[in-house]
Amino acid sequence: MSKLIKLNNIHKHYSMSNFIVRALDGVDLTIDEGEFTSIIGPSGSGKSTIMNIIGCLDIVSKGDYYLCGENVARLSDRRLADIRNKRLGFVFQNYNLLNNISALENVMLAGKYAKMKSKECKLLAKEALRKVGLEGRMFHKPSELSGGQQQRVAFARALFGNPLLLLADEPTGNLDSKTSKEILKMLVNLNKQGTTIILVTHDMDIANVATRKIEMLDGKVINDIRREKENEIN
């Protein structure tokens, strides 16, 4: 398998009023294409920060980040936007859908930013919503959908352009246990279909769904375990 992500000595510091927070403190990490990796750690361990760095939502203070062999730490804002649009997909704990537009329009947004033709964009968005089982709720606004349905819309939006990497930050955090299991099954299936997934969670049971588990503490990777066996969702 080829290397999708390579982090070399990544540091991320935040300046507070009279002290510096070291959110990431020299992280080295490699993730291969097709891997299902969970990043786990307590609050403040740096797990969300590393996801933001990998997702090009934030920039590093120091170090190099290679995505598909390209050092994205040195790219322009415009190029980073292109990467987020075409190579990455995000699923957040609070869904992050736009409330004033329908589920279909939310999914179509990614295509619109890719300057895709409206007709083609609509077809692909409908297809993505069908895949997550929401063909009957396409024209509903997020406020008219349940939490699980909103998260499915978020998945449809994340998978819209067939991204190389799906980043999921506590995707089941706001869901009941039944819906959480459905979402996790969806992640496993996506991974089986070849999508590389990084799942950030503080819940060990959820982290165990992944084939690789990275534990973080105080901005450092303290454990990196790979498992051979199939994922199990109880």
């Binding site: 415009r78 936007a81 292109d82 987020r84 995000f90 736009l98 947004l109 930013y113």
Partner: peptide, 10 residues
């Protein structure tokens, strides 16, 4: 933020 995460440029 959501628009930028999806790929909106400046």
């Amino acid at each position: 933020g959501i628009r930028k995460a999806i790929g909106a440029r400046r």
